[in-house]
Amino acid sequence: MIGYVVKRLLLAFPTLLGVATVTFVLSRSIPGDPVYGLVGEQAPAEVIAAHREMMGLDQSLPRQYWRFLAAAAPFRRPSIAHYRAGPFRIPYPSFLKMPYLGRSYYARRPVAEMLLEKFPNTLKLALAALLIGVTAGVGLGFLAAARHNRAADRLATAGAVAGISFPVFWTGLILVLVFSHWLGWFPASGMGRGALVFLVLPAVTLGSRSAAFIARITRSSLLEVASENYVTAARAKGLSPARITFKHVFRNAMVPVVTLAGLDFGSYLNGAVLTETIFAWDGIGRMAMTAIGQRDYPVIIGCVLLGAVVFVAVNIVVDISYRLIDPRVKYQPREA
């Protein structure tokens, strides 16, 4: 198992390197001169030259690439740092650092710092959406499987296809229209200093699509497991239907559901861009949108990189947990 974890982590390195390379290519293909973006076109020539040198743009492309990688990596050459505890300074080896992804044209702050600041908000939204997606999805899927080929099943299945087909941003706006403007139950936007009512609509919006996906997979997985031999055996043994359903069918059927939920979670940043824009939720997605509006390229690129890194990380966690549940599984990457 430990061997598998190590192998899986090592396998992520080429992917992350590739991700960083794509990010570098994107960041060097942005329209306009990044120095102008930072200091403006009217800046004196020596200021522009100084910035160009500081940003390393006067160097050869391979060298720029290397510097980009070294700056973006969270590692540095190990050195001794000190931890202050009252009058004591406790030395410890340190090899981690804050990745440097350039500076925002507008906020004039390091992009990584800005990402780190907004990340908790997006994480909160994503976790709430995951909760809703899993609860509603598993519930609907269970209902559909229990009433297989009856009206409730048809309805739930149709609802799931519809849920997959509705654009996230439109669902969000309709929810605002109905539950905020017409019924007045929930606030239309903002975060309200963390009050839960503000979280409801954005989380439902973001979670609705995964609820639909999870409902589909739950239904088909439950039906598949229910027709396995060991379920027939349990029934022949005289176990109660409830016991069979929950102890034998449900548990085994949840394996693909867990995988799907994890993968969906990894791709929530996609939906977060749209959801956070609609609800003025102060997270990574909204930051990305603001940056696009301002043509603040370092921030845009930073958000894309973060999205990919999060996705790779979630994939690793999913793969490892999947393997914990079912040791027969072999490594197989998936998509957002």
Partner: peptide, 24 residues
């Protein structure tokens, strides 16, 4: 396969956004 893996690692909408931003 490596190229495919790398492409799959990007959330698709974000990647599309980045490409659009670069190309105009």
């Amino acid at each position: 396969q490596v190229v495919v893996d790398i492409t799959l690692a990007f959330p698709s909408l974000l990647l599309a956004i980045a490409i659009t931003v670069v190309l105009g």
